[in-house]
């Protein structure tokens, strides 16, 4: 039980996928202007991340490793994630139009999101069992959403702040991201 707890804390705070491992930076910068949008993106990434974590783990354990072609990991996982995102998009569009509307724009963006691939590869590297894979993916998804929501909260306030003209927009956002990353370093001694 304690192991799982450590995985959760470590994934959400200490090794936060965005702020400590610098994966998934593009949605972090691109979709963090509004709180509602960042929540939508966080939800979509979380969903894909967990499902992709499960499928890539199964693929690696039951196909790639027995055949001795573990070096195909990256390309195989990308193939899985891309098809999965397409499939999920179709299913959601059919069965939950309201959810599709909420996630619609963000779903295709996840196809090449390195956070999803990154977590899938970390799952394999750490040689997790299935249960740990699920917990680990879910925690990283929560960490991603957390980082996005925090960032969007700050950026909403930045809109009203008196910032020098040359620093407005992305430059100040990058500085904010760097400061957030530094502050997340403070969690490194937690475990």
């Amino acid at each position: 039980m304690q192991e799982y707890f450590i995985i959760i804390i470590s994934a959400v705070f200490i090794n936060n996928i965005v702020l400590s491992q610098f994966l998934g930076i593009c949605p972090f910068m691109g979709v963090s202007k509004k709180l509602s949008a960042s929540l939508g993106m966080g939800g979509a990434v979380s969903f894909v991340l967990v499902v992709a974590g499960f499928i890539t783990w199964a693929l690696n354990t039951y196909l790639l490793t027995p055949l001795g072609i573990g070096y195909l990991q990256t390309i195989a996982f990308i193939l899985v994630i891309a098809s999965l995102v397409q499939f999920v998009e179709m299913v959601i569009k059919k069965f939950s139009p309201s959810l599709y509307k909420a996630l619609g724009i963000y779903l295709p963006l996840i196809t090449t999101n390195c956070a999803v691939l990154g977590v899938a590869i970390i799952n394999i590297q750490k040689e997790f069992s299935l249960g740990k894979v699920m917990v680990h993916s879910l925690s990283h998804a929560a960490g991603f959403t957390l980082a996005l929501v925090l960032m969007s909260g700050i950026r909403e306030r930045l809109e009203d702040a008196d910032i020098p003209e040359s620093m407005r927009g992305v430059p100040i956002a990058l500085i904010v991201a760097a400061l957030m990353s530094i502050s997340f370093l403070g969690f490194s001694g937690l475990i």
Partner: peptide, 13 residues
Amino acid sequence: TLAAMGGVFGIIL
């Protein structure tokens, strides 16, 4: 393997 995977995913999609 890769070709098969691609084919299977393609058919599923």
